[in-house]
């Protein structure tokens, strides 16, 4: 018995979600040769977008970043309407919503792993809930307005920590030419990325909750997405255990802040929460627990 417990401590069992996150991160970045050579992949698969935030300038990336592609498409939208990228984002959002954030985003995985380091944690509150609106401002200002007016991909250029960690740092380490070109902007981006990673140590998924414009886009689709967490209205008593247990700033299961990770399934006393197809028109009842969950 004791050896079993010791084994469990040394090798904690990974959840299906963790496996999915790891597999997604590896699949997105399976061009291992690129890391050694300091060059990026140029194959045809780069014309496709992955659903999660993953920089296409990462030497390992075999597909495009949806957010980078959107900004790039908006830069040239004076000449061409970005049908392809908009269609891709609409399809991803409609099929999965923020299930993508919970299961298919490598940067989300990184933040969750950092959060596992034992330190004092900041719990969700009115302040974090207010801060969670910031990502919509970033979406409008940096992803839409700056590319349309200043003709530069604002979010990629000034904020994106995935670009710095997956693209900038590995390329700078492996490629002397790129290393020689680093300047003030790179220093700024390293500072932003470091600040976000540090925040993730104390605050669960700080970037996803407060800053990520891709999460903001997918949040609009959460209530209508085909797959994800669903609540059985005939079983739900509205006790609010799910919302209290959730580390995101949700007001109810499957609202815009819910990343559909399914962690709430285990705490529901009525087993009313499950994963699956949430067919169009399927009625759902979610507990109204705004007041109950204030901490």
């Amino acid at each position: 018995m004791k050896t079993d417990e010791k084994k469990k401590k040394r090798f904690p069992k990974l959840s299906a979600r963790r496996y999915t996150q790891l597999i997604a991160a590896v699949l997105y970045n399976c061009n291992v040769k690129g890391f050694a050579e300091g060059k990026i992949f140029k194959g045809a698969s780069k014309g496709l977008c992955v659903p999660g935030l993953n920089c296409y300038s990462c030497p390992g990336a075999v597909a495009a970043c949806p957010l980078g592609s959107l900004q790039s498409a908006l830069l040239s939208s004076r000449y061409k309407v970005p049908y392809y990228v908009l269609g891709t984002l609409l399809l991803f959002g409609l099929v999965c919503g923020r299930f993508i954030c919970g299961f298919l985003c490598p940067f989300g995985l990184l933040q969750e792993l950092i959060y596992k380091i034992p330190t004092k944690k900041i719990k969700k509150s009115r302040v974090t809930r207010a801060l969670s609106k910031l990502k919509y401002i970033i979406l409008i200002a940096f992803v839409i307005v700056i590319p349309l007016t200043k003709l530069s991909p604002g979010f990629c250029k000034y904020i994106c920590p995935a670009g710095t960690l997956e693209g900038g740092v590995p390329l700078a380490l492996a490629n002397a030419d790129i290393r020689g070109m680093l300047g003030a902007l790179f220093s700024w981006k390293v500072f932003v990325a470091a600040a976000i990673l540090l925040a993730s140590l104390f605050c669960y998924r700080a970037f996803c909750r407060f800053l990520c414009p891709l999460g903001a886009i997918y949040s609009f689709f959460n209530p209508v997405s085909f797959f994800g967490v669903k609540v059985d209205k005939s079983k739900c008593t509205g006790c609010g255990a799910c919302v209290r247990a959730c580390k995101m700033d949700v007001k109810k299961v499957c609202d815009g802040e819910c990343i559909q990770c399914g962690e709430c399934r285990g705490v529901c006393p009525e087993n009313a929460i499950s994963f699956g197809y949430k067919g169009p028109g399927e009625a759902k009842r979610t507990p109204k627990t705004d007041r109950q969950t204030e901490e």
Binding site: I40, F41, K42, G43, A44, K46, G47, L48, C49, C55, Y56, S57, A61, A63, A64, C65, G68, S69, S72, A73, S76, K80, V81, P82, Y83, Y84, V85, L86, G87, T88, S152, P153, C156, K157, C160, G163, T164, G167, G168, L171, A172, I178, M181, L182, G183, L185, F186, W188, K189, V190
Partner: peptide, 24 residues
């Protein structure tokens, strides 16, 4: 988008190093 060459546009952008993304 596919008919309009959107796939090629994304491919062209993603197959070259994005200087803004990496902080240059």
């Amino acid at each position: 988008g596919l008919a309009d060459g959107g796939f090629t546009d994304v491919l062209r952008k993603a197959a070259t190093i994005c200087f803004e993304c990496i902080g240059l």
